[in-house]
Amino acid sequence: MRTAAVIGTGLIGTSAALALTARGIDVHLRDADPDAARTAASLGAGTVDGPEGVVDLAIIAVPPPMIASVLAACQREGLARCYTDVASVKAGPRQDIAALGCDTVHYIGSHPMAGAERSGPLAARADLFEGRTWVLTPTPDTDTDTLNAALELVALCGAVPVVMDAEAHDRAVALVSHTPQVLASLVAARLEHAEENAVRLAGPGIRDTTRIAGSNARMWVEILSANAGVVADILEELAADLGTAVTGLRSMQAADEAKRAEGASTVEDVLRRGNAGRARIPGKHGAPPTRYEVVAVVIGDQPGELARLFAEAGRAGVNIEDVLIEHSTGLQAGLVQLMVAPSAVAGLTSALQQRGWRVRSDR
């Protein structure tokens, strides 16, 4: 690949363009909003000038309802040898593409499983796709050259390709992406009119649960509208489970001891099912889930403290698998939770305590 065109310079389009230009690809940028394209160009994502000839690959990064019409226009123009889109749903756009009679030999759907709470070209990063899954959904007649072009795009962006059927992809993302977005928003909405004293108690649990609720609402309406039926099906299943949990909680308040015990058993079953589902999420580098233990360290909120802590963990020969920082309300300090292998807990705890850190572990 030597040349590419990116149509749509939002977060995903601009991030792909940045990754490609960083690897020497000539990228030509287009957007319905010329200011967005110029902003992306100013960030080093490419040029707003048109290509001199046919580009190797056109990447269509527009909302799902617009994919088919943009693809049709680009193919009429003869913009590229191969085409892909990066929309978060695949079945609906494919149906639209077929309805418009687009060339599907030189087209392949794709979806990089990456994003951020912020949108637009200013939120873009060249490393956005590093190590992330990038789904490819070829049509029955997608040719080998087009598949290879898409695979090269994925490789240049540092992502990991996975080939799926379009409908299977939509069911999967409804479960692991679209439904969680709605649920995070529903939980966060409970905070809108909550008393200030309650909100001030917010800790890492509520922060983790509601992180994606900060995403652009209009953008998510466009995504959900293209996968609404599947998401609604999953939400209905969740509603049934929620009703079961509510019934169990009400029973736990009953005067009858047997009723209370039954309610507790119902709620415990819900929580244990959650344990089982959580345990299926892939671990580090896609490996089977690994159990880590926590070494919690009190840390001052000043420059250099976190780097010093990591350096001392390194000197102790301990690999930090994950990290979580909980900031203290009203104090210039926080709690850093270092996730490490169980065998490393004792050694790391001892090493840090010897260096004067206030440490506690799960043990």
Rank of each mutant, 00 (worst) to 15 (best):
D141A: 02
H193W: 01
E236A: 14
I212P: 08
R211N: 07
D233R: 11
D33R: 14
L335P: 01
L201W: 06
V70Q: 06
T14G: 08
E117G: 14
A313M: 07
E77R: 15
R200C: 09
G214F: 00
T349L: 03
V89D: 05
I223H: 09
A5W: 09
P303G: 00
A255F: 02
E262F: 08
M1R: 05
T146A: 07
A17H: 06
H178A: 11
V173S: 05
A91M: 11
R308H: 11
V105Q: 13
T139S: 11
K284T: 13
R38H: 10
A159M: 12
L71A: 12
V62E: 10
A276L: 14
L338M: 09
L224F: 04
E312V: 04
T349I: 00
G317E: 07
G314W: 09
A159E: 05
N197I: 05
G50D: 13
A228G: 01
H106G: 00
L309T: 03
P180Q: 11
D96H: 14
M164K: 12
T210H: 05
P93D: 03
V62A: 08
V62L: 10
T209C: 09
G248S: 09
V176Y: 07
A17Y: 02
A17L: 05
R125G: 05
L128G: 04
G283A: 13
Q181N: 11
V270Y: 11
G13N: 11
Q75T: 05
L191I: 06
P64N: 03
F310R: 04
L136M: 13
V173C: 02
S185D: 07
W357Y: 15
L249F: 09
G317T: 04
R278H: 09
A91V: 10
V6E: 08
D49C: 01
R125F: 01
R38P: 06
T290F: 01
P282I: 03
L249D: 08
A226P: 03
L324R: 13
R272T: 03
S328G: 04
R280P: 00
A202H: 05
L57E: 06
D301T: 07
D26Q: 13
P289H: 10
D85K: 09
Q354C: 06
K259F: 00
V182Q: 09
P121L: 08
T9V: 12
G283L: 10
A80W: 10
T137N: 01
E268V: 02
A68R: 04
E152D: 14
D256C: 11
G109A: 12
A16E: 09
D127I: 09
R207P: 04
V135A: 07
M252V: 02
A98V: 10
H28S: 11
M164Y: 07
A261P: 00
Q354M: 02
I206L: 15
V160W: 03
L235N: 12
D362E: 15
I60A: 06
R355N: 09
I234Y: 13
P180W: 12
S119P: 01
M164V: 05
A36T: 11
E236N: 09
R260I: 05
Y83N: 04
P34E: 08
A72K: 14
T3S: 15
T179P: 03
R190D: 12
S251D: 15
V270M: 10
A168N: 06
V160Q: 13
A72Q: 12
V231P: 08
L338S: 06
V231K: 05
D233Y: 01
E192A: 13
P289W: 04
E326A: 15
R76C: 01
L242M: 12
S119Q: 07
P140I: 07
A240Y: 04
V160S: 13
A17M: 07
I25H: 07
